[in-house]
């Protein structure tokens, strides 16, 4: 298999397979979670839960108070840089937008490529810092297992290979193929790991927020 065959394979059949597994896993796992349902609140509530749930979805983007921020300043900051960076790269890099246009049928303006380049560097650095922190912080080291490190790798690789491809390190078509392959790897493991939080965080926040709002607490 030469690099052209490889590139065509990752752009074609492999991507199709990855998409299928990704979507399949998502719909399966989400249904599995939601179908467990919860009992209705029978106490007289102070506020309807629905709005409160949505409020928490947004409110939780920021730490609830200064103390919470100070105690986790590093992970919050680095976590934000990484998450924002990742989504900016994913959603605002023109070639990616063209991909989404194909899928969704509409597109949006992208960022100038040098800006994406800088953001990519920041994202990579944030990810590396988060990894070091995970290996060194007593709590994180204690909590982390194979999955945590594995997920880090599959998240890191697309960013790294994307950057290398973009800057034509080594051989562009090969780098591009590796980049797409790493994205496919990410998509395949996605529904079966903690990466699912990408789709469940707002469900979790909503559940917590709605119950708290019913009790009259803004969380």
């Amino acid at each position: 298999m030469n690099y052209v065959d490889f590139l065509l394979w990752v752009r074609g059949p492999a991507f199709q397979i990855a998409t299928a597994i990704f979507i399949f896993g998502l719909s399966w796992r989400l249904l599995e979670i939601l179908s467990l349902s919860r009992k209705p609140e029978l106490a007289v509530v102070r506020e309807r839960g629905i709005a409160g749930g949505f409020r928490t979805i947004f409110r939780r983007f920021l730490p609830v108070d200064d103390n919470t921020f100070q105690r986790s300043a590093f992970i919050i900051t680095a976590g934000y840089i990484f998450h924002l960076g990742f989504f900016i790269i994913l959603l605002l890099f023109v070639p990616h937008i063209l991909f989404f246009r194909e899928f969704f049928g509409f597109s949006w303006p992208g960022l100038p490529t040098p800006v994406i380049g800088i953001i990519t560097i920041m994202t990579l650095l944030a990810l590396i810092a988060l990894l070091i922190n995970r290996m060194r912080h007593p709590v994180l080291r204690f909590l982390s297992g194979f999955e945590d490190y594995f997920v880090w790798i599959v998240t890191f690789l697309p960013v790294l290979t994307g950057y290398m491809a973009f800057h034509h390190f080594f051989h562009y078509p090969l780098m591009l193929a590796l980049h797409i392959l790493s994205v496919e790897l990410l998509m395949i493991v996605f529904p079966f790991t903690k990466l699912m939080h990408t789709f469940t965080w707002f469900i979790s926040r909503w559940y917590t927020g709605s119950r708290a709002a019913q009790k009259g607490v803004q969380v």
Binding site: I33, L36, R71, H197
Partner: peptide
């Protein structure tokens, strides 16, 4: 006792360790 919120909570946890910082037994 396991219900949808609990399933969602376990699925969401990213092992960030922030909850430890909120608990006086850890701090």
């Amino acid at each position: 006792k396991i219900d949808a919120p609990i399933a969602s909570y376990f699925s969401s946890c990213v092992h960030c360790g922030m909850c430890a910082q909120a608990c006086m037994f850890f701090t």
